[in-house]
Design a protein around this nucleic acid. Sequence first.
DNA 1: TTACTAAATTATAATTATTACAAATTTAAA
DNA 2: TTTAAATTTGTAATAATTATAATTTAGTAA
Lengths: 150, 150
Amino acid sequence: MDTTTEAQYHLLRCGIKPSLQRIAIAEYLLGNRIHPTADDIYNALCVKMPTLSKTTVYNTMRLFADQGVVTSLMIDDKNIRFDIDTSCHAHFICCGCNKVLDIPVDESPCLNMKQIGDLRITETHLYYKGYCKTCRSKNVGVVCPESINQ
Amino acid sequence: MDTTTEAQYHLLRCGIKPSLQRIAIAEYLLGNRIHPTADDIYNALCVKMPTLSKTTVYNTMRLFADQGVVTSLMIDDKNIRFDIDTSCHAHFICCGCNKVLDIPVDESPCLNMKQIGDLRITETHLYYKGYCKTCRSKNVGVVCPESINQ
DNA sequence: TTACTAAATTATAATTATTACAAATTTAAA
DNA sequence: TTTAAATTTGTAATAATTATAATTTAGTAA
């Protein structure tokens, strides 16, 4: 089964009608596990699909998030990033190069909460901020992350 | 010691020169533990301090974050929120009313990481999204959080 | 096929949080 | 008092996202 067909089935399983644009976006997400922004997705796809509109990307990402196809990450204060891996894991963002990485998590009670007191929990996000090895070797990251990030 | 003086000392301890504006903002943060946005802070203070500029609030919040006076929360996809309690705790946001609450955390290994493989960790954020009791009783929150939040 | 309807996509404009910038004011120092 | 530095301020710019309405596409009934 090729990647396009896989993307199509992925959408069908989530109850989403697989249009050309939706398939292209899902295929991109499945093949590029870089936690892209809406802009990243648009820029990557508009080369091969010149009629694609940025509004469609935003509409589609909202649909995908609603249907549980992706998780919206708020780790980057500038953009929303999307992760098609909705399994339980944490995320790291390098304040030097802004790359976002997946971090596996051990069975941790605080990440599996469905209820805290009166509060019903629907999503849990564990974010780490810091510096990757490459950026540290370039001496990025000797100061506070907040001031570098601008 | 009154709250103004307390705010002033708080800033001095963090190596910040306590101007009138900075003291007013710190005093507000110490007295209103609601994880306000820059806009919240501005709107609350400009009544008593009519010359205050929103740019000053943003500048000051950046300074405060850099100096460790506050933590910047990215729990709300619309705004940055600020927490003057920089001790280790998690946050909950109600997708019905957008209130942000503090959640105590037990000693959890994943929250005290300083290094993961090659990555140096400088900040850890644990966010819960869901619905508070009040919003659940109003039948807000029967659907996916992403679609409500708009 | 044709006509009709609903869904999806698109372009454009609007909104809004945040930042950049430069002038004005205040504070500190000489 | 003069001068320099720091802080504050208003305005304009930026940029991510959303709203809106028109257009296109897909699906369906006659």
